[in-house]
């Protein structure tokens, strides 16, 4: 299927270390679907994103991009704290990916930017503002638009909503969910927040640490399908059920480890 990304048996160790940070990680990302990774700190979630983004080379395994366009790997990476360049205005930041690709904005560029701004409830006037003049939520929205203008085959998101207030986070989750479905992009989202993972994930993968590995895979389905509202699903009985399952998986693993450590000690 075009736009599919396969992560095959990835293992990774930091240079000079004997311990694996990631061991034998395999997963598939498909267009229009959000895969969420949850797990304790240090389980290698961000390391996995960096490998998919080609910022780190895995010790073994590989990442395959099945892109119909033949243009190869194009990654949109959204960080917890946006990386908008403070000396460029919003328009300059959104244009950055295109400039780096050595392309000039065509006639449709500005139209597309305005369409994205509207879908994220942003006003056109912010195009001439600098990042320091925007709120955290607005900056994060601009960072997502910047990535989308780059026409990525996958969006990687590293706790993108963690630094936002609750209301902004819910709004942005809804906008993000709609965008992934309408733009038909594959997305891999890392979060500490189980609530968030269930609310916007089509799949939630639970990881454990030492070494980082996927220990559970939950397919998330709510009544209402693609039209779901990440804010509203939080009140559904199924939501509590998923939460309970994931919480237990993480908790049991943690208890097992504590017990094992206690026995070994």
């Amino acid at each position: 299927m075009p736009g599919r990304i396969e992560i095959e048996r990835i293992s990774y160790r930091y240079p000079g270390e004997t311990r694996f940070v990631l061991k034998d990680i395999s997963l598939k990302l498909e267009p229009g679907r959000v895969v969420c990774l949850v797990g304790p700190s240090g389980c290698g979630k961000t390391t996995l994103l960096n490998i998919v983004a080609n910022l780190l080379a895995p010790e073994c395994g590989n990442v395959r991009f099945h892109d119909g366009s033949g243009e190869g790997r194009r990654i949109g990476y959204i960080f917890q704290f946006d990386a908008l360049l403070p000396w460029r205005n919003v328009h300059g930041n959104i244009r950055l990916g295109l400039e780096i690709a050595g392309r000039k904005p065509d006639d449709t560029f500005d139209e597309k930017v305005i369409t994205y701004l509207k879908s994220f409830n942003l006003d056109e006037t912010i195009l001439h503002q600098y990042p320091s003049q925007l709120s955290g939520g607005m900056r994060q929205r601009v960072a997502i638009i910047q990535s989308l203008m780059y026409q990525p085959n996958v969006l990687l998101l590293d706790e993108p909503f963690a630094a936002l207030d609750f209301y902004t986070k819910l709004t942005l989750e809804r906008e993000f969910w709609n965008l992934i479905k309408t733009e038909n992009k594959a997305a891999l989202l890392v979060t500490h927040d189980i609530d968030e993972a269930i609310a916007i994930g089509d799949r939630v993968l639970v990881m454990e640490a030492n070494p980082g590995a996927i220990i559970a895979d939950y397919e998330i389905r709510f009544d209402g399908g693609v039209g779901r509202d990440p804010a509203e699903v939080r009140g559904l009985p199924d939501f509590a059920h998923y939460f309970d399952q994931i919480w237990k998986t993480m908790g049991l693993r943690r208890n097992d480890r504590v017990l094992k450590d206690a026995v070994l000690a």
């Binding site: 983004a53 910022l55 990654i75 949109g76 990476y77 960080f79 704290f81 990386a83 360049l85 950055l96 990916g97 780096i100 690709a101 780059y150």
Partner: peptide
């Protein structure tokens, strides 16, 4: 983070 963004792009 700016350098990471440039690497990603």
């Amino acid at each position: 983070r700016f350098l990471r963004l440039m690497d990603v792009m």
